[in-house]
């Protein structure tokens, strides 16, 4: 640096954390191309986050899958600390159980942040599904719960439909601030690019009543 320039050392501060929970449908209807595209999208997402120095230090990813059963296959973790799993599809669609697990995960992780004094952002819950929830799934109950929690700013909820998803169900589940989106074709790569950009926006702008997220036209359309 030239003489007469300003010089300074910067302190070591612990980075704020942004929890992003992916609630992914791995039921039988996802077998074949859909699950393959989703897996490729996840790999792309990992690469995009790794290339963003700030997001890679702030974003904690948690992956919950649902088919006939629900599994948290990736506990909240920074992108550098885990290998993106390869998902396999099969079974029925316990969609509501998957969402319940995600809501519980939001609460426990936020408690952990509070207990350890870690600053954090409003978590994201992203649900991707292509099907119809099983008959025993209490869609009405969980949708009421989501409404209250999103109103209370506990998290942001984005329901994404793929191919033959029942958009009436997604509309019922969604909060008015973030209507359900329909993925155009199997455009997971563009979707995950958008998600990566959105996380950047959330972690870099001030909280307000409105969330200004990047344009979604590259991958989806609002379900009408």
């Amino acid at each position: 640096m030239a003489a007469n320039d300003f010089l300074a050392e910067t302190p070591e501060n612990f980075e704020q954390k942004c929890l992003c929970i992916l609630v992914l449908d791995v039921s039988g209807s996802m077998i074949g191309n859909p699950i393959q595209q989703l897996n490729e999208g996840l790999q792309r997402f990992k690469q995009q986050v790794m290339n963003d120095e700030i997001a890679s230090q702030r974003l904690e990813i948690c992956i919950i899958t649902f088919s006939g059963r629900v599994a948290c296959i990736q506990e909240p973790s920074l992108i550098h600390n885990f290998e993106m799993p390869t998902l396999k599809a099969g079974g029925s669609t316990a969609l509501v159980d998957g969402l319940r697990r995600a809501i519980l995960k939001v609460t426990t992780r936020k408690n952990w942040y509070k207990q350890t004094g870690q600053p954090y952002y409003r978590p994201f819950v992203i649900m991707i599904t292509d099907g119809e929830p099983d008959a025993d799934q209490d869609v009405k109950g969980v949708s009421q719960d989501i409404d209250i929690r999103v109103d209370n700013k506990e998290f942001l909820f984005f329901p994404i439909g793929v191919q033959d998803a029942n958009m009436d169900v997604l509309r019922q589940l969604s909060h008015r601030s973030t209507p359900p989106m329909m993925l155009r074709g199997l455009n997971f790569n563009e979707f995950f690019q958008w998600l990566s950009n959105s996380v950047s926006v959330i972690t870099k702008s001030k909280e307000g009543d409105k969330v200004n997220l990047p344009d979604t036209s590259g991958w989806g359309q609002i379900a009408i």
Binding site: A8, T10, P11, N13, F14, E15, Q16, G117, Q118, P119
Partner: peptide
Amino acid sequence: EMHSFECSVWDEKEEKYYD
């Protein structure tokens, strides 16, 4: 602020981060 203030550091005694 993160580049010029200490605003998120580890407290050994309390075993948590603080500002």
